[in-house]
Design a protein around this nucleic acid. Sequence first.
DNA 1: GCGGTTTCTGTAAGCGGTTACAAGACCGCG
DNA 2: CGCGGTCTTGTAACCGCTTACAGAAACCGC
Lengths: 356, 356
Amino acid sequence: MSPARPDPVPVAPAARGAHATIHDVARVAGVSVASVSRVFNGRDHVRAAMRTRVEEAAAQLGYVPHAGARSLSMARTGAIGVVLPDLHGEFFSELLRGMDREASTRGLGLLLTVLHDGRGLDTLAVLRGQVDGLVVMAPQLDPAVVAQHMPRGLAAVFLACAPQDGSASLRIDNRAGAAAAVAHLAAGGAKRIVHLSGPAGNLDAQERRAGAEAAAAAAGVTLCVVEGDFREGSGAVVGECVAAGTIEADAIFAANDMMAIGALMALKRQGVAVPEQVAVAGFDDIPLARLVTPALTSVAIDIAAMGARAVAQLAARIAAARNGFWEGATDGADEAIVPHLVVRETTMISRQGTGL
Amino acid sequence: MSPARPDPVPVAPAARGAHATIHDVARVAGVSVASVSRVFNGRDHVRAAMRTRVEEAAAQLGYVPHAGARSLSMARTGAIGVVLPDLHGEFFSELLRGMDREASTRGLGLLLTVLHDGRGLDTLAVLRGQVDGLVVMAPQLDPAVVAQHMPRGLAAVFLACAPQDGSASLRIDNRAGAAAAVAHLAAGGAKRIVHLSGPAGNLDAQERRAGAEAAAAAAGVTLCVVEGDFREGSGAVVGECVAAGTIEADAIFAANDMMAIGALMALKRQGVAVPEQVAVAGFDDIPLARLVTPALTSVAIDIAAMGARAVAQLAARIAAARNGFWEGATDGADEAIVPHLVVRETTMISRQGTGL
DNA sequence: GCGGTTTCTGTAAGCGGTTACAAGACCGCG
DNA sequence: CGCGGTCTTGTAACCGCTTACAGAAACCGC
């Protein structure tokens, strides 16, 4: 090796289009980088004179700290990863809205990752070092597979999907919600209820179905199940069938609102009176539910609150981890969110005088 | 200084809850960190034997590269910042959906930042070093202020707001859309149209209003403007007024669908026939528009496509910047998205036999 | 005027990767 | 067997920032 290396050159006059670094500020202000850092982070003792010199230099250079570098040395990114299934409709805007509300009060950003049908879970790994924790919602996936792909040691909260050990989770009490809807339909006089379920592989769908079946049994009414896909189209098909008499029923309970609305529209198109001839209820209580005519009875979840809660819980776990409770007894922390029934026109029957 | 410092200790046996680093992998595999890096990044020549040793060590330790460190040394984060006004409803889920679609095919993540009413723009600065570029949508803000807060040298695309110099922008041709709606109402026989505008400070609102006024003038019909707030409530108020005759009108053109729906519901409640007595049209064509009864005529924008386009344009700018075109002549690149009218029941009038 | 504090400020070692550069391994050939 | 060239691999210098630690400066009472 040549004894004198080619002289590192002080370099970087912050010209070009590039950004000024903390070194540029230090040089211009005639102080050390440590001092600049102190000025920007407050806490430490810095003399007023130096503070103003640094601030002036920074302003002059248009210096903005580099979040990436900062997060690397502080081992804290200030962002949380949100992993969601393919986004559709109001459910997701509400969820994100709630998450954002909570995250922004804590000074956290939201890094969105959508699990598209095909590839997907590998992207989870990529998140290490880019986020402080993860909120994962993947009702369509096998929990074991998800667990396997989780970056180890990263705080996580699971939302509305099968619980993982060692991680907190937030679940919707689908059974209770579905049961409430079916009980309500039965109380309104329905005798033959058709349950339009979600896809068989989906956990929410399974639980809602179970709740519906339990309530039907308890109320002594018959319940037949038709599998749908959570989209308007499958609701329409069932609506047509009921209207045509192919399926004999006096009430439809759909596992989500979009299917309920599809059914409702189909019934209307076919001239079937709702709720007089067939009552309809959905699940989720999307904003649209109260706007369709007749307004749709639905099982409501405060989606935004759920999102906010998930973020709050994650923040707590992150804090705990930072304070040394490594994979300690901090787990558990499973919460179930109990939905409530919102009764509207599609079930306002008084066929038996027992309607609510 | 003591001549022998306290011996740095090789440390970090990847135990604890922490993650294994590239050094751990190197140590276990008995190679240098450079080699591990090479194995993980493919490109370079590495002998098969070493590759497998490294891969085994990595698998054994559950090693996952640290995105933060990686982005620091490569000066590329793999994420783009999305800055949006307060999220509401389907518009945003569609927008995000489109952005995500485009971003994920390019291997980019989406870092969401919502500009809440009060504080806000300072958060933009925080993004430096955390994202490779920014898609900014801030129709409610003064462009000059936004420009001032932009981290210098960061690629950006502005969405549906006043153009910034040096940055690309994507705009909705609000004038054309509003004009089409008003022209359609006039063609259907409307003589006195009330335009329910958005908040005065909002650029979209201003442009839609201008388009409506121009079209009304061209068609020789009277147009009176009432300022709303883009939410259902203000639509309801105007609906009530029209029903009560406080405002005399035979057609309502609202600057967005939620207000149109609010008006529509109010009219229905008051027993005013739509479209026979009063026609109604909205703007945005949210999914809800076709589901209300009667179905709402609206000006449609392919929101998801717009989001996708914004991301694509940003990706192009980022690539350009990386290739040395620093704030070069690459600017301009302004695109306008022309919306189209979707005619539905609320304007299917044939009062004059001229209805569409 | 000097040791003992207390308060600043600078030096340098990380954080976890990438990568230019040079050194070593290996090969074919005269 | 020595030599130039091609592959592999290791060393170490960054990327931009934080922070433990130590040195300098200022202040104090004697």
